[in-house]
Computed example of a mutant assay.
Amino acid sequence: MGERKATVAAEVGLHARPAATFVQTAMTAPMEISVAKLGGGDPVNGKSILQIMALDVRQGETIVIKAEGEGSDEILEQLASIATTP
């Protein structure tokens, strides 16, 4: 299973526009994608805006994004890039 860690840079955290962009990108992938806060909490569906927003990820917190399958490295890089964009 592929995995990327990303520190969220946006002032609003992984909420509103960053969350929507993250989910829209995740939806383009054929595989399941999970997201969790580093150091605790259960992973959530990376394709669900409600679950992503419920994580309550704030600026400066690190998330772990996981995906497995063909093209997972590319989608993980894209999602990590979204999370680290201020």
Score class of each variant (00 low, 15 high):
Gly60Met: 08
Ala20Asn: 14
Arg58Ala: 13
Gly69His: 02
Ser72Tyr: 02
Val12Gly: 15
Met27Lys: 14
Thr62Gly: 11
Ala20Glu: 15
Val44Arg: 11
Ile75Lys: 02
Gly69Leu: 00
Ile33Gly: 05
Glu68Pro: 03
Arg17Ile: 12
Leu38Trp: 08
Met53Tyr: 05
Thr21Glu: 14
His15Ala: 14
Val35Lys: 01
Ala20Tyr: 14
Glu32Thr: 10
Met27Thr: 12
Leu38Ile: 06
Ile65Gly: 00
Thr28Gln: 15
Val44His: 08
Thr21Asp: 11
Phe22Val: 03
Lys47Asn: 15
Ile33Lys: 01
Glu11Thr: 13
Thr62Ala: 07
Val57Asn: 05
Phe22Asp: 03
Glu32Val: 05
Asp56Phe: 07
Gln51Cys: 08
Gln51Leu: 15
Ala54Glu: 07
Leu76Phe: 01
Asn45Arg: 11
Asn45Pro: 08
Val12Ile: 11
Ile33Asn: 04
Val44Pro: 07
Ile75Asn: 04
Leu76Ser: 00
Gly39Thr: 00
Ser72Thr: 02
Ala54Ile: 01
Ile63Cys: 06
Val23Thr: 04
Leu76Met: 03
Arg58Glu: 13
Glu70Asn: 10
Leu76Pro: 02
Gly40Lys: 06
Lys47Phe: 12
Asn45Met: 11
Lys47Gly: 10
Leu50Glu: 04
Met31Ser: 10
Phe22Ser: 04
Met31Gly: 07
Leu76Tyr: 01
Asn45Asp: 13
Phe22Ala: 01
Pro30Asp: 14
Ile52Arg: 02
Glu11Lys: 15
Arg17Phe: 13
Val64Asn: 01
Met27Val: 07
Gln59Ile: 07
Ile49Gly: 05
Asp42Arg: 12
Leu55Pro: 06
Glu61Lys: 08
Pro43Lys: 14
Ile49Pro: 08
Gly69Val: 01
Ala67Phe: 05
Gly39Pro: 03
Leu55Gln: 00
Ala16Asp: 10
Gly39Gln: 01
Ala20Leu: 12
Leu79Gln: 10
